[in-house]
Nucleic acid binder design. Structure first.
Length: 568
RNA sequence: GCCCUCGUAGCUUAAUGGAUAAAGCAGGACUCUUCUAAGGUCUUGAUGGGGGUUCGAUUCCCUCCGGGGGCACCA
């Protein structure tokens, strides 16, 4: 409802700029608070409290419908607003009377979210977890906000390592083995190639030669490459299914290979790129950046070159208003260079955003190395989380049938892991810690899932068919407890949290909101015993209300990509 | 050396330039004949140091200290 208050102030006071409105941390400062008078006092050369007083007079006159019960001056010049209970009830019905549809702030504009971006013939490890989870949630959030979202898994499917892999496969590979455990056996071949290559340069040459053949379209190598790709995707699809993640596009680096030479030629012609030490670079002094290398001295292209082609293709085909690239902040220089080059090329029609996040570090505080074996695979992480959740479910709720316990454990374990990443979307690094990742109490997904399960349990135990829970028909006047009104107000702030999450590309706002809503819901069923109510009309109204609280929490968790079991 | 990023309670983290810095974990005290105690209630405890801008700074600027990442032929 922040937007509503903002609009009300802006219209009434005829302001050019959007006024600042926030939800105060202290309840006695009102439902909403604006610092608009303090912002404008200086340029108007008046005392902020006097200005606020004038504003309040106009606002009170403008509030003909009685939306606010109180508009008050406070502190150095804050204007604090209290919403009327009836208006809250009305809005609740308006917003949540049917299913929760979202808000159309995106106006069907295109947004491309690039995330996960795995490498072919490599295992998915903890490093891929953050990008996959954060990217998927951001995609969901943009969809809720009315954007047309394209989910893009930008595959690492090109490079000399594929020549090595093909060479290794031709030497020692076994079709059956690869088909059975693709990533495992391809990885083994790759490692073997490296070990053997230490004996002499002939093997390396062979790898390079195979890659050259692949580049030139040799049909056998092309087939092998395609097969490796398919098998890898088949294998990781199991993980994606467990994570509830799905992509619209999985075009990778290889796709752009053909476009690269003409891009380089074009950049040279326009004077954007130039030769240097046998390579081709784009100087970026004007952006205070080091020069970007787009072609090696041996003529080979680079990741950045392909990203330029990638950007060009996306702009042309999708005309997106935003491109979000969810990848760790170790690549921030790369994306700053890409952004600079896109400006030089005039490819800055859409917002190109590197959604970065901190690295996951080992216990020693150093970067996890992909090369060494010390990396935890995603399967291992998921299995461990689910196993732990299963233990807790079995202990807390032994009466649940075995199959349901398994399902609950999957939702709880995976949910806990996801929420752990989504509740904090900051740029500082994270030290990998099993205990913290698998924590199931406090500000975690299981707490939110538990809250919904409790709410649904109340509905179930009422023995009233769910079709009767109609907030439109309920007599909401009977809901007059402080906690009930506070909950209503909180529920109406849901969209704000989603909007801020999208604006700042930070899922933490939504996660924090859901935790707060959840805390209030827990207080609610602690304080108010719905089923014990002898007033049938009020009981039915409360059941309808409980149903909507659960619905908002469920929707929020859905946006975060977290499943909600009926019982837990 | 240069660039980026981070530094908040014992730990993990919040806080579009706002009022009394907010949670969770851990610690202490309560709370299950009442809709699931994965809960609820109370409680101890913090902005790295120093300057500046501002009516107001965790937030912006400068500087110092400390952690992490990056810096032409990897992605």
């Amino acid at each position: 409802m922040q937007g509503f208050v903002k609009e009300f102030i802006q219209k009434t006071l005829e302001l050019k700029a959007e006024p600042g409105v926030e939800v105060p941390t202290v309840a006695s400062y009102g439902h909403y608070s604006s610092n608009v008078a303090m912002q404008l006092a200086k340029e108007r050369g008046v005392n902020p409290r006097d200005l606020a007083q004038d504003f309040i007079a106009s606002l009170q006159v403008a509030d003909k419908d009685g939306v606010f019960t109180n508009i008050e001056l406070a502190g150095p010049g804050f204007i604090n607003f209290w919403l009327s209970s009836d208006w809250l009830r009305e809005q609740l019905v308006k917003k949540y009377g049917k299913k929760i549809d979202g808000v159309n702030v995106g106006k069907k504009e295109q947004v491309i979210v690039e995330y996960s971006s795995i490498n072919i013939a490599k295992r998915m490890h903890v490093g891929h977890l953050r990008t996959t989870i954060i990217g998927d949630a951001l995609a969901n959030i943009h969809e809720y906000l009315g954007y047309k979202v394209t989910r893009w898994n930008y595959l690492g499917d090109w490079g000399t390592q594929f020549g090595k892999l093909i060479a290794a496969y031709k030497l020692w590979g076994d079709k059956e083995e690869v088909a059975q455990a693709p990533i495992e056996s391809l990885l083994t071949l790759y490692v073997k190639f490296h070990d053997e290559a230490k004996q002499g340069p002939t093997l390396e040459d062979k790898g390079r030669a195979e890659f050259k053949k692949l580049e030139d379209g040799d049909s056998e190598n092309r087939k092998l490459w395609q097969w490796f790709k398919e098998e890898t995707l088949k294998e990781v699809s199991v993980i994606y299914r467990r994570l509830g993640v799905d992509f619209d596009v999985d075009i990778g680096e290889a796709f752009y290979e053909k476009a690269l030479q003409s891009i380089i030629k074009d950049l040279k012609k326009k004077g954007i790129a130039q030769e240097s030490e046998g390579a081709i670079i784009v100087p970026l002094e004007e952006f205070n950046l080091p020069p970007a290398l787009i072609q090696k001295s041996d003529g080979a292209t680079l990741y950045l070159t392909r990203d330029i082609a990638n950007l060009e293709y996306r702009l042309k085909k999708y005309k997106p208003s935003k491109i979000l690239i969810v990848v760790g902040n170790e690549q921030s220089l790369h994306f700053r260079q890409l952004g600079a080059i896109s400006q030089l090329m005039g490819l800055n029609s859409s917002e190109l955003r590197h959604v970065s996040y901190g690295l996951i570090l080992g216990a020693d505080g150093k970067k996890f190395s992909t090369r060494e074996g010390g990396v935890v695979s995603i399967e291992e992480l998921l299995d461990k989380a689910v196993e732990m959740a299963y233990g807790v479910v079995s202990q807390k709720n032994p009466d649940l049938p075995e199959e349901e316990r398994r399902q609950v454990a999957e939702a709880v374990g995976v949910g806990a892991l996801k929420y752990n990443d989504l509740r904090e979307n900051r740029n500082s690094d994270i030290i990998f810690d099993w205990d913290q990742m698998l924590n199931l109490a406090g500000n975690t997904a299981p707490y939110l899932q538990y809250t919904v399960a409790r709410l649904r349990s109340i509905l179930r135990k009422s023995q009233i068919p769910s079709t009767k829970f109609q907030i439109k028909k309920a007599n909401l006047k009977l809901l007059d407890q402080e906690i009930e009104l506070a909950l209503m107000k909180k529920m109406l702030d849901f969209d704000d949290s989603v909007i801020v999450s999208a604006q700042q590309y930070m899922t933490s706002h939504l996660a924090t909101y859901l935790h707060e809503l959840s805390q209030m819901a827990n207080q609610y069923y602690e304080q108010v015993h719905v089923l014990a109510d002898e007033n049938e009309e009020r009981k039915l109204a409360r059941l309808a209300f409980v149903d909507r609280v659960a619905a908002v929490l469920t929707k929020g968790l859905e946006l975060l990509g977290i499943d909600v079991p009926e019982r837990i």
